[in-house]
């Protein structure tokens, strides 16, 4: 598959430039399948939402180059100092203990770097937190140890279902261990999906790496986040907050499909899950 897009290229180029181990990344990135972890992966997953792409840009273009430079700069200084000012090279120590201009410089330059980082970072933060007008709202509830989904009636839903991990013995060929589930949750592609998140027992966290989404499911609170998937496919997530013995066994699967297929699925699911979670409203808290 030669699915090379601009992102992968810039990503590859950056990786090669900033760190030696990361040079391997360009090769790995080409083989990447969206939505699931990459074997031996070195970087962020390929993102499929605006927020995810923003995160990827912030990390790969701003944060990663800056922190790599600082690490190499400090390492370089340490090596130089050890080489130049060891006992053999410099038997008589200087008495230098103050240099006000230097101290002002190494206070001010970090301030400028941080200001530089904060501009794109805060812009992305607002994008994450402010939920745009959504065409579909899903309510997700964490349980020990599975996720429940509810699709509201006024948006063509009106049903709910539980999403359980498939045990290893039931896996079909090609399904991923610890990630495959019995009931996938479908969403329409290229539409804003608002997700309301809460929990029935202890704290869980709903996280999907390729969406750039991570939000805690807390009993008694209704948290909100959003995503707009820009590419059809199956996207895997996991529970990101320790919730007891089966914390590692409550995966999340979201399948993004076209609007037509989504409508079909809604109709089928209404039949399939009839009675399971009848008559759901968006702001239902439990």
């Amino acid at each position: 598959m030669f699915n090379v897009n601009r992102q992968m290229l810039t990503r590859g180029a950056l990786a090669a430039a900033v760190a030696i181990p990361a040079t391997l990344c360009a090769g790995v990135a080409l083989a990447q399948v969206e939505g699931q972890p990459v074997p031996g992966g070195l970087g962020l997953p390929n993102m499929v939402t605006p927020v995810g792409l923003g995160t990827q840009q912030l990390y790969n273009m701003v944060l990663m180059p800056i922190i790599s430079f600082i690490a190499l700069f400090v390492l370089g200084l340490l090596i130089y100092v050890c080489y130049r000012f060891n006992e053999q090279a410099n038997p008589i120590p200087s008495k230098l203990t103050h240099n006000t201009p230097l101290e002002i410089i190494w206070t001010l330059i970090p301030v400028l770097i941080l200001l530089f980082i904060s501009v794109p970072s805060l812009r992305l933060l607002a994008q994450q937190v402010e939920v745009p007008e959504a065409s579909v709202t899903i309510k997700v509830t964490g349980n020990q140890w599975y996720w429940s989904y509810k699709y509201p009636e006024d948006q063509g839903g009106g049903f709910g279902f539980d999403q359980m991990m498939k045990p290893e013995s039931e896996l079909q060929p090609g399904e991923l261990r610890l990630l495959a589930v019995d009931n996938e949750a479908l969403v329409p592609v290229n539409e804003v999906i608002a997700v309301h998140i809460t929990s029935n027992d202890v704290i869980h966290a709903f996280g999907i790496p390729s969406f750039g989404v991570r939000m805690d499911a807390i009993p008694g609170r209704l948290n909100q986040t959003w995503f707009k998937v820009e590419k059809e496919g199956v996207y895997y997530g996991q529970c990101y907050f320790i919730c007891g013995k089966d914390h590692a066994y409550m995966p999340i699967v979201i399948r993004a499909v076209s609007r037509e297929k989504y409508n079909e699925w809604l109709a089928q699911s209404k039949q399939k899950f009839a009675g399971a979670g009848a008559r759901v409203r968006i702001a239902d808290s439990r």
Binding site: L58, L63, L124, L125, A205, G212, R214, Y240
Partner: peptide, 11 residues
């Protein structure tokens, strides 16, 4: 960065 942390939190 709260924005970047949403990718890394509890990971």
């Amino acid at each position: 960065n709260a924005s970047a942390d949403k990718q890394f939190h509890e990971g």
